[in-house]
């Protein structure tokens, strides 16, 4: 606080001055002489009257300022990433969809070969309409990303390897995650995760901008999952849970839906989660 700093420096300066002045009788005399002359009226009666009136008024104002009731909004220092009630078990959680197990990859390849890869209900209608309009193309071709293109080429050539297939499956999850994000999170956090959704201005505690440094990249995935799962009500007191509009998503979204959203959220924000420290 600059006020406190100024006070300390002023006090130190005054003490130094007092030491200097009282160091010898000669110093003392030199110091007091002009003051005495001023008080005697040697420099004029008007300036003396002015100083004698102003100094008490200044003192009175200072005392008033210190004792009068101060009207400041009660401010709470808010901890953005509280850890006091963060369960240790979440610390090392990994997003299971970022690295799907072999069985899931196998099943996906089989479905892709048969041309009947199934999607979550929320995107099904849109995918179906695309497939009807593009009957001559593979049913995954609308996923216009490099890993999916590579997979579909390999599928055609009959040379699919597990790595290529896994990367394509993650693209499918990302597609679903983006749709779930757009349906559930977008209104506040914005279509690009920049914290600029149409409702953002309605909350005193603004929705987090995930593209900012120091947000989702400074925490482990398990923490993100914990925050999405328990929302505002799951925050400890130091993070002012009463101001947070973040829902307790465990009441509305399945675990898989939450992980899909987190996968898409990091991808859209172009961030990677912090790696858990190994113990």
């Amino acid at each position: 606080m600059p006020g406190a700093l100024v006070f300390i420096y002023m006090t130190l300066a005054l003490i130094a001055l007092a030491i200097l002045v009282t160091f010898s009788d000669r110093h003392m005399h030199e110091f007091v002489r002009p003051v005495k002359r001023f008080l005697r009226g040697d420099f004029g009666r008007v300036p003396r009257a002015a100083v004698l009136a102003l100094v008490p008024l200044l003192a009175g104002w200072q005392v008033w300022d210190i004792t009068a009731p101060d009207v400041a909004v009660p401010a709470a220092l808010r901890i953005q990433h509280p850890s006091s009630n963060f369960p240790k078990s979440f610390e090392t959680l990994k997003n299971p969809l970022a690295n799907p197990p072999e069985a899931d990859v196998q099943a996906f390849v089989e479905q892709a070969k048969a041309g009947n890869v199934a999607f979550i209900a929320q995107v099904e209608a849109d995918v179906k309409r695309w497939r009807e309009a593009n009957a001559d193309r593979h049913g995954l071709e609308f996923i216009a990303t490099a890993p999916m293109k590579k997979f579909l080429d390999a599928l055609k050539a009959g040379t699919v390897d597990p790595q290529t297939a896994k990367a394509a499956l993650v693209e499918k999850y990302l597609f679903e995650g983006r749709a779930l994000y757009a349906m559930n999170c977008r209104a506040c956090h914005g279509d690009s995760t920049a914290g600029d959704g149409p409702m953002a201005d309605g909350f005193k505690l603004r929705p987090i901008n995930f593209t900012d440094n120091g947000t989702i990249e400074t925490i482990v995935e398990g923490y993100t999952f914990w925050r999405v799962t328990n929302g505002g009500p799951g925050l400890p007191t130091e993070a002012t849970p009463w101001d947070s509009a973040m829902p307790e998503w465990k009441l509305s979204l399945t675990e898989e839906e939450r992980w899909k959203i987190i996968l898409a959220e990091y991808d859209l924000a172009q961030k990677t989660p912090r790696i858990p420290e190994s113990h």
């Binding site: 609308f142 216009a144 749709a179």
Partner: peptide, 21 residues
């Protein structure tokens, strides 16, 4: 590719304004 990643969940894969959201 940009459309697929950034626009399609609202505007739809076919651009008909009928995406999942």
């Amino acid at each position: 590719a940009v459309y697929f990643r950034r626009c399609s969940f609202c505007h739809g894969l076919l651009g008909d304004g009928d995406g999942p959201a």
